[in-house]
């Protein structure tokens, strides 16, 4: 651990080294929904509201609790952060005196059949979860969603590893008995954001370009494939369709292969709000107004007709037109690159 990280950790520990703050955090991790209002905490613990406010301010500053935006009327509620759960919840289970905690407490409801790992008071440490263990389908879906959301920053493998690890970390905490899936989702998101910050990764280091057509089996696939090819890792390219087809048109694979572009692993994908929001440039190709418009993004509409399937020569003409437009787009997105090529 480097000195800066050690200093940060020491500060966090120091903030928690107060009986009242410990009691507040411990209470929050014991409640059925892991959250409470400041008034509720004061009443349950029997300590003064001012002391609770002081404790919550200090804990929030140290990143150990966060306020939830209340979606209904009532006092705002506070709950533990991922840091609090992962770093401190096993400490909160500590009791002084000889002997460890009894281990005959009801096990964590994991949602995954039998599990013969010991669930003692000291969760089994280790940077990675046991490799053979599978996560339940819901956790897998969460990982897929987050992989999509963080696709500009982390590989899908990294995101899946973080979600798995977060899931197993939380599951091994004897206090985490409910909402394991939603807690995993929330905390994996927090940890991925933190990881991006810690590594100094900007969330959008390269332009994010989205090509949209109706089926995402033809025009948008060609454009995306060509831009990936010429932009390399200097651009992040996605494509989607307002009414995605089941497969990519076979003639598309053929005409792209002719210019050395691969469609390996591509498939028609639905247009979602979140991929539009994640994009800097959105190019629509005949999908009408199906594409939602958000401020701050560049929208371009390319009028390109799809030729008959059997006419391979017309397909090539269309491919070349898309290629020229993509090259123009790429020059406008990376001025330094085009200057470099000028005599």
């Amino acid at each position: 651990m480097d000195p800066t990280e050690a200093l940060d950790r020491a500060r966090q520990v120091l903030v928690l080294a107060h009986p009242e703050r410990l009691s507040v955090l411990s209470l929050l991790t014991s409640l059925p929904d892991y959250s409470a209002s400041a008034a509720g905490i004061a009443e349950t613990l029997g300590i003064a509201p001012e002391a609770v406010d002081e404790a919550l301010d200090a804990l929030a500053q140290a990143g150990l609790v966060h306020w939830q935006r209340g979606d209904r009327a009532g006092d705002p509620r506070v709950s533990p952060t991922a840091d609090a759960w992962i770093r401190f919840s096993s400490l909160l289970d500590k009791r002084p005196g000889p002997g460890p905690l009894p281990t005959d407490a009801p096990g964590v409801q994991s949602g995954v059949g039998s599990d013969d790992r010991p669930l003692g008071p000291h969760p089994v440490p280790g940077p990675t979860p046991p490799p053979g263990q599978e996560v339940p389908p819901v956790i897998h879906r969460i990982a897929d969603q987050l992989a999509h959301r963080f696709s500009a920053t982390f590989s899908a493998e990294t995101v899946h590893r973080y979600v798995r690890e977060t899931y197993f970390l939380l599951r091994s905490r004897s206090r985490v008995q409910r909402y394991l899936a939603s807690l995993t989702s929330r905390f994996a998101t927090e940890r991925l954001h933190a990881l991006a910050l810690a590594r100094g990764i900007e969330m959008r280091p390269v332009p994010q370009v989205l090509f949209v057509c109706v089926a995402n089996s033809h025009r948008s696939q060609i454009a995306a494939s060509i831009l990936k090819f010429i932009g390399g890792d200097q651009v992040h390219v996605r494509s989607a369709g307002s009414a995605p087809a089941t497969d990519i048109a076979p003639e598309v694979v053929e005409v792209l292969d002719e210019i050395g572009c691969s469609l390996l692993g591509e498939f028609p994908k639905p247009l979602t709000d979140e991929i539009v929001q994640a994009s800097d440039v959105v190019i629509t190709m005949g999908c009408g107004d199906a594409c939602p418009v958000y401020p701050g993004r560049i929208y371009l509409d390319w009028a390109i007709e799809v030729p008959p399937t059997h006419d391979l020569q017309a397909q090539r003409v269309m491919r070349d037109e898309i290629q020229h437009r993509v090259e123009d787009l790429w020059r406008s997105l990376s001025p330094s690159r085009s200057e470099h090529h000028q005599p």
């Binding site: 120091l14 080294a17 410990l22 507040v24 400490l91 002084p96 206090r175 008995q177």
Partner: peptide, 25 residues
């Protein structure tokens, strides 16, 4: 799982003391 809401006063104080011993870079 262990039927308590928050550590009692002396438990919290002991834990706070241990954390102070840990709270140094």
């Amino acid at each position: 799982s262990h039927g308590h809401l928050a550590p009692d006063r002396s438990t919290a104080e002991n834990l706070a003391r241990m954390l102070r011993a840990l709270a140094d870079p």
